[in-house]
Design a protein around this nucleic acid. Structure first.
Length: 263
DNA sequence: TTCCAGGAGGGGG
DNA sequence: CCCCCTCATGGA
């Protein structure tokens, strides 16, 4: 839950309450197994990508020492299949922000505008977000992202074609996503990966930039170049590899306060 | 006080 | 195309 793909979850009943779109699940870990309790089993089976065998990534990339450690550390990670609109708004908010505050802002948006589902609230529609306007987002503490959110909500409510993105090649879908206000290269990559399952995407944020310079090579400078290089290296597996590396890097710097992991 | 967080938009060259 | 600056907000 803590690998930064999803922002609507909280501790509950010995595990977590997980919200996606207008649906809810409770997850509890028992040793190596995780129990998922929900009324929408099919939705969350797809959401958590439960049919895929993730051990193949260790077999393929275990030769990279840093990846092998990252995989074992983050074993159980899934690339989530999230609602596209929710993913778009969530990651616009994520720009130059920290996860705790991203969670807070999204929580406030749902509490203010989401349908009451009986015990929790749904993520509001683009139409409702568009009606709320820029001031609404500013009042919630979205900061300078408030106008981005308002503009993108308006675009999505006014017929921006999200449907075609699923069948579009990754490069084309990326270009189209970046025409949304507040969606640059990195945010687009997150939307491609978590909202459209384009796994030939490698979101490069400040943490992945550190990973790259510490464990790969240092030839490339811009995040765009690094992302392109890593997609070239891992292809359709790029998104999976990225997630293990991101989680490991971030969690280690948190708990140890230093990079204790150079190999 | 300064730095940092799952960066992006805008201007100028 | 590139480089540079600025943009809220809150915690460390």
């Amino acid at each position: 839950m803590h690998c930064g793909q999803i922002f609507r979850f909280k501790a509950a009943e010995g595990g977590y309450e997980v919200l996606s779109k207008d649906k809810r699940a409770f997850v509890v870990q028992h040793g190596r197994d995780v129990e998922v309790v929900t009324k929408d089993a099919d939705y969350f089976e797809n959401f958590f990508d439960l049919k895929r065998d993730y051990s193949v990534f260790l077999k393929k990339y275990g030769g990279y020492d840093f990846f092998a450690k990252a995989f074992r550390f983050g074993e159980g990670i899934r690339i989530l299949n999230q609602d596209l609109q929710e993913t778009i708004f969530s990651f616009i908010i994520s720009a130059n922000n920290n996860i705790k505050r991203i969670q807070l802002i999204i929580d406030r948006i749902c509490n203010a505008l989401g349908d009451d589902m009986g015990g929790y609230r749904a993520f509001p529609s683009a139409e409702r977000l568009a009606r709320a306007g820029e001031a609404f987002f500013a009042d919630l503490g979205a900061g300078y992202r408030a106008p981005y959110l308002a503009k993108t909500a308006k675009m999505l409510a006014c017929g921006f074609d999200l449907q075609c993105l699923k069948t579009l090649p990754t490069v084309e879908a990326r270009k189209k996503l970046m025409s949304l206000c507040g969606v640059g290269p990195k945010v687009a990559d997150c939307i491609l990966l978590f909202g459209l399952r384009k796994t030939d995407s490698f979101p490069v944020d400040t943490w992945i930039e550190k990973v790259y310079h510490e464990h790969f090579e240092t030839g490339l400078k811009t995040r765009e170049d690094i992302a392109r290089h890593l997609v070239g290296l891992f292809g359709e597996d790029a998104g999976y590899v990225q997630q293990y590396l991101f989680y490991y890097q971030r969690e280690n710097l948190w708990t140890n306060g230093s990079k204790s992991d150079n190999i």
